[in-house]
Design a protein around this nucleic acid. Sequence first.
DNA 1: GCTTGACCTTGACATCATGGGAAGGTGCAC
DNA 2: GTGCACCTTCCCATGATGTCAAGGTCAAGC
Lengths: 136, 136
Amino acid sequence: MNIGEAAAATGVTAKMIRHYEAIGLIHEAGRTGSGYRTYGPKDLATLTFIRRARDLGFSIAQIRDLLALWQDRGRASADVKRIAATHIEELTAKMRQLQEMVMTLQHLSANCQGDDRPDCPILDRLATGDDAGGCH
Amino acid sequence: MNIGEAAAATGVTAKMIRHYEAIGLIHEAGRTGSGYRTYGPKDLATLTFIRRARDLGFSIAQIRDLLALWQDRGRASADVKRIAATHIEELTAKMRQLQEMVMTLQHLSANCQGDDRPDCPILDRLATGDDAGGCH
DNA sequence: GCTTGACCTTGACATCATGGGAAGGTGCAC
DNA sequence: GTGCACCTTCCCATGATGTCAAGGTCAAGC
């Protein structure tokens, strides 16, 4: 199986497969006589694992650790759970940040007429830091 | 006022001030005879505006537009509101993504013993796509 | 056997906003 | 006149991914 087929089978682009190999996230693929990379079932499983982890937002560094644990039969599930917990915290922290931005923007937007006139509490807020429709 | 003072006064690093100038987000700063950049009150206001917009998660491209509107006395507040609305949508879309990740991870994590044993639904999910503690 | 088109190879560069550092010039206080 | 803090430009790095270019390879059709 060459890289294009592996990409189609796992949902990881050929480009990223090469990249993951270059940064040492996955082993170097086998090669045909003419230099084409070849992939077996084990490689596909690893790539699929990586894609699922990326879909859950894990960083490459975290995936590196997860892969190591996955391949370690003597692992403790506590180690995996800790990585997940850390990641959940990172995600919720980001969510809170976004939430704050959204709430501020919605508040400002609600006070903006959105008409032909130039007066705009959104710009006022950015320019002065003051909130015309302040509520506390 | 030179770049270091401007940075301290606005909360934008000197590095970023130079960068914003290089990409044309702000006008080229005046220079002293020896080449030091100089900043006046107007420049500080612009930089502060940019920092507040960044704090609200606006992209440089969006800030470019906001700055143009800010400096356009004939603007329609509707234009500003539209940019904000677009941005709110982007932010909420990201939040939804994060939310989904978090929910999945919390679910998997809840089913993980987190002890010395290797069995782990988190790894199982990444490896097989199956959910041991499936609920639907 | 030759052409064609799809695929592979490496490598360089772009994104986005930001940080780090090197090498050298400037300003000011002691 | 020395030292230190600041300034200048320029280059490189991040993280994950995309794009493009120039060239090699494979398989099918003629």
